[in-house]
Design a binder for these strands. Structure first.
Length: 423
RNA sequence: GGUGAGGUGGGUGAGUGGCCGAAACCAACAGUUUGCUAAACUGUCGUACGUUUAACCGCGUACCGCGGGUUCGAAUCCCGCCCUCACCGCCA
């Protein structure tokens, strides 16, 4: 959520940013400013009254100690009266604070200056592309056909055991999953990311911290009996590692990576583009997260993009990098780069990674701070990205590296997979 | 699931109604001393909101797991909840 000082000091910038993000309800900004003013006014009154009660109470204590009971009783009566009023004010203050919070939480993050203006995915900006489009003139099968042919993934079995969107990987398909996870994690730890193996269920506070709650409640699986949520991405538990922590400036940047399965209900997205591995309810992903000094976050974002790009290159896949336009960005992001890989058999681009700078939008909520040179606490900036999401990578590996004689495995993966082809 | 113990500042831990935002020790930071390091000594050392300010300082308020209650006054007493630890039971 946006820090309140932005509204007081940079109202115009807030409005301009919201507009770029295609946010409609701009009246909220004025409402927030007005509620904030009320809140401060009430706090001044409330604090003043509390101060007089506190001094009076101390006075009573002294009088009692001196045995001046009658005098003390006089003050007691006074305090009793003020107390009721004080209670009302505290209640009013709490109401205003809650109202303010409810309002601010509804506003998305402000986009960075480099974010293109636009409303739809068509208006995203292609930053660059790379890799080679394969020649599939000899054979061009979609990944679900290849998966069936080599018995790598059993979608029907997933239906039987759980339901649609829960594929079962078998044999060399399962092995390839494991190989990808290990490869990605090793690649990240070699770049200095500390590996985490987080819980796959989180409590409400944690889900709130990264912004899944209160809005995206319907997107997560909920374990009602215990009040837990299945994580939609490792970003949720991993970023929350530092919730309520003041990090020493010398310890920045904090670099973390984690593999986890991701659970997404994908409510409302049935029917379209869901064939095979294109969209599933449970999938695997390796995530990278960084907590950095505010002045460094955009340089770090570029580093992370390069990091993911090189990983993609090592898999021999054709890719392109998009800078998302204001209307297509996520609620929490200030700048997002999407990575898409070309699915040669389906002849379409599939998103396999999304790398974002959230600035202090997440850390404001989670109170992740550092102490700067002058001893003051400041919010750090948080960033994250996928490196990478497995199902679509798997789909593109199968499709793009297929030959009539089998599926070639990229050299970087071979040590993990234990063979150079699936034949 | 059962029984018991407990949640206090970065850590250990004292504090059973006012002199407590909180002792002491450790850690950390700054300085003195020192050929360097270490040791010793001195000092600083929670967070948030508000107020004021160019900014600091200062001042006010709140916070001793969370939420209520009693009282003029609560870390301290009462009630509810959450969590942690130990042991037993069950189990991978």
């Amino acid at each position: 959520m946006l820090p309140i000082y932005l509204f007081r000091q940079e109202k115009e910038r807030v409005i301009e940013g919201l507009r770029k993000k295609n946010f409609k309800d701009l009246d909220l900004v004025e409402k927030i400013i007005s509620v904030d003013e009320q809140r401060r006014q009430v706090q001044v009154e409330s604090d003043t009254l509390a101060a007089t009660i506190n001094t009076a109470s101390k006075k009573i204590g002294q009088l009692m100690a001196q045995g001046q009971k009658a005098e003390a009783d006089l003050h007691k009566a006074e305090v009793s009266q003020s107390k009721e009023k004080a209670k009302e004010q505290v209640q009013r203050l709490n109401e205003l604070e809650a109202e303010l919070n409810d309002l601010i939480v509804r506003l998305p993050n402000l986009p960075h200056a480099s974010v293109p203006v636009g409303k739809t995915p068509e208006e995203n900006e292609i930053v660059r592309s790379g890799g080679q489009r394969p020649d599939l003139s000899a054979q061009k099968k979609a990944h679900w056909d290849l998966a069936a042919q080599y018995e790598l993934i059993d979608f029907e079995l997933g239906n039987k055991i759980t339901g649609s969107g829960f594929p079962v990987y078998t044999g060399r398909g399962a092995r390839l999953q494991r190989a990808l996870i290990s490869y990605f994690l090793d690649y990240n730890t070699q770049a200095g990311y500390k590996e985490f193996y987080p819980p796959y269920m989180v409590n409400e506070t944690t889900a709130y911290g990264t912004g899944q709650l209160p809005d995206k409640e319907g997107q997560m699986y909920h374990v009602a009996a215990d009040g837990f949520y299945l994580i939609p991405t490792a970003e949720v538990p991993v970023t929350n590692v530092y919730r309520d922590v003041i990090i020493a400036e010398a310890d920045l940047p904090v670099k973390m990576t984690a593999y986890s399965p991701c659970f997404r209900r994908e409510a409302g997205s049935y029917g379209k583009d869901v064939r095979g591995l294109n969209r599933v309810h449970q999938f695997d992903k390796v995530e990278i997260v960084q907590l950095v000094h505010p002045e460094q976050s955009y340089a770090v974002l570029e580093q992370m993009v390069l990091h993911v790009e090189q990983l993609l290159q090592s898999l021999g896949l054709e890719y392109r990098i998009l800078r998302l336009c204001g209307g297509d960005m996520s609620f929490t992001s200030a700048l997002t780069y999407d990575f898409e890989v070309y699915s040669a058999a389906q002849e379409r681009w599939l998103e396999v990674s999304s790398v974002s700078n959230f600035e202090n939008f997440q850390t404001n909520r989670m109170k992740i701070r550092f102490r700067d040179g002058s001893g003051k606490t400041q919010l750090v900036h948080s960033l994250n990205g996928s490196s990478l999401a497995l199902p679509r990578i798997m789909a593109c590996l199968l499709e793009n590296h297929q030959t009539p004689g089998g599926i070639k495995i990229p050299a970087a993966l071979q040590p993990y997979f234990g063979a150079d082809a699936i034949a």
